[in-house]
Design a protein around this nucleic acid. Structure first.
Lengths: 108, 108
DNA sequence: CGGCATCCCGAAGGATACTG
DNA sequence: CAGTATCCTTCGGGATGCCG
């Protein structure tokens, strides 16, 4: 008896859909891309670079990315306080895959 | 003078964000995955396989996927009418990349 | 400086009924 | 059979102000 393949592995929560959820937010790609290009960046600098993002959205995106281990948040106890965000090693491994995705979309 | 890298290439509409938009809809991955696993599939069969999707959502997703050349829609003028959806060649080239994305998310 | 609290809006997603 | 039409809900995203 052959496998029916009636159901698709994506039906319930699959790794692929999880991945898409992690990077699917509206500003998340820009954030990761900017941190990748510019290295560790302070909150307000990041906000300036991503022109047009609001505080609520940027803060939420950063917190989610941190929870998902895609960026790190380092707080330096100076006066005034300094906070720097940077991408993690796992996130760096993601970049080449994203490059392929970009290349693919250009062949459409 | 070195490049400033102040701006990220994702700031305006980049290929990567376009790609994420194409496959980012809620049921799109399941649709593509099912069509990939099961081959050309009729509308109602697809709807049964993707348990829980409504007509509006499924029809919209399929139309968008067709516009974006990720699936084909073939209409057979029988009685009653028969419509089969299938993934395109460009879409098949996408699959290995998505596999990598899935693998990556499992290493997190 | 680096956010959080609040309020708001439009788009995405969904349920249901109906039709060519 | 393969959808559209209609209406409704939810939620991601956004603007603004304030605070530790």
């Amino acid at each position: 008896m052959q496998p029916t393949h009636d159901n698709c592995p994506c039906m319930d929560d699959c790794p692929l859909n999880r991945a898409l959820g992690l990077i699917g937010g509206k500003w998340k790609m820009q954030i990761l891309c900017s941190l990748y290009n510019n290295g560790p960046t302070r909150y307000n600098q990041l906000k300036k670079t991503l022109d047009g993002v609001s505080n609520t959205v940027l803060a939420n995106a950063l917190r989610e990315l941190e929870e998902d281990r895609l960026v790190t948040r380092r707080e330096y106890l100076e006066v005034p306080v300094r906070v720097e965000y940077a991408i993690t090693e796992p996130c760096k491994r993601l970049i080449p895959i994203l490059d392929q995705l970009g290349d693919w979309s250009m062949t459409l």
